[in-house]
């Protein structure tokens, strides 16, 4: 455990530095994960490039059709952001259960994304919102849908010399709502046994599902979208029966493991229950009366 610590002043400097020090350098943002990995001797970088103070990578901006979250935005900022109290409430729900307040004041959403932990809590919400990542590297900037960005457990399509600078979320149409639900052995400080994010948009009449996006964490090698369940729900009556069916379909789509936190079998059952519950919460939040 011995490394040099670098503090570039701009994104360009940071990328240049990463290129120069490749492959022995790692970016560090909040550090809540990487410092533990270094201490556990899981990684041993020779250089850490601190991006936490880079200008322009923090904070939440809003235009008429989208939100842009700086990659360095802290969970606590999201939790307290008034614009997310409405249809994007899942963002708040996930941000508020990641570690304790102390971690929420340190950890960044960009860090959580590039870690690509299968059990990341924030990633399912972003995935259910079809988030797009803006990335800067030596060859300029590119944008990638989050869906294509995470490729496996701890693996992303990010090059070691690239930085995620922001995350963009399209605003939801009317009659939309989101929900995030999580199960763990405790009520706080938990790595999810399973977590589910749902985004539901109802048809104009308000009784059928126009579009549904379901993202599930800790139930497969990476956070995934339950496409079969989503496809089934489109055009279906938004009711308990269809939500329960979607839960069953999602449970068939998942590929959980057994570990010290839970068995694969229990995780699969949770997926079924939690998908149904997340959808129910969305439906209630759309403000429509249940039939």
């Amino acid at each position: 455990m011995s490394f040099d610590f670098h503090r570039p002043a701009t994104v360009t400097e940071a990328v240049d530095l990463a290129q120069r020090l490749f492959p022995t350098a790692r970016f560090i943002a909040g550090g809540s994960d990487i410092v533990i990995q270094i201490n556990r001797k899981k990684i041993d970088p020779s250089h850490l490039i601190d991006v936490a103070c880079l200008p322009g990578l923090s904070g939440i901006a809003e235009t008429s059709d989208e939100f842009t979250l700086g990659a360095l935005t802290k969970y606590h900022t999201i939790e307290t952001h008034p614009a997310f109290a409405g249809s994007l409430r899942a963002l708040i729900e996930a941000a508020s259960v990641i570690g304790g307040r102390q971690v929420q004041n340190i950890a960044t959403i960009g860090g959580n994304i590039v870690n690509a932990s299968p059990a990341a809590d924030f990633v399912p919400v972003l995935l259910a919102l079809d988030a797009v990542l803006d990335i800067t590297g030596p060859n300029g900037s590119r944008s990638v849908p989050l869906q294509d960005f995470i490729v496996g457990p701890g693996k992303t399509s990010l090059l070691p010399v690239e930085i995620v600078t922001s995350i963009r979320l399209a605003k939801l149409p009317a009659r939309s709502a989101t929900a995030f639900v999580k199960e763990g052995r405790r009520r706080a400080m938990e790595i999810s046994v399973v977590c589910v994010a749902a985004c539901l948009t109802l048809e104009a009449g308000g009784s059928r599902c126009a579009s549904v996006r379901l993202a599930i964490g800790a139930a497969a090698p990476k956070v995934f979208r339950a496409k079969a369940a989503e496809a089934y729900l489109e055009g279906q009556l938004a009711d308990q029966t269809s939500f329960a069916e979607a839960g069953k379909l999602a449970a068939e789509e998942c590929a959980p493991i057994s570990d010290v936190r839970a068995s694969a079998d229990y995780r699969r059952r949770l997926v079924s229950i939690m998908v149904e519950r997340a959808l129910t919460a969305c439906f209630e939040r759309t403000g429509e009366e249940r039939r």
Binding site: F5, R7, I28, G31, S32, V35, I36, L48, D50, A52, H76, G100, R101, Q102, V103, N105, I106
Partner: peptide, 15 residues
């Protein structure tokens, strides 16, 4: 840290 609670065990001094 600047008024906000943080875990000092996982913050590198350089940060």
């Amino acid at each position: 840290l600047d008024g906000k609670a943080v875990n000092s065990c996982i913050l590198l001094a350089g940060q």
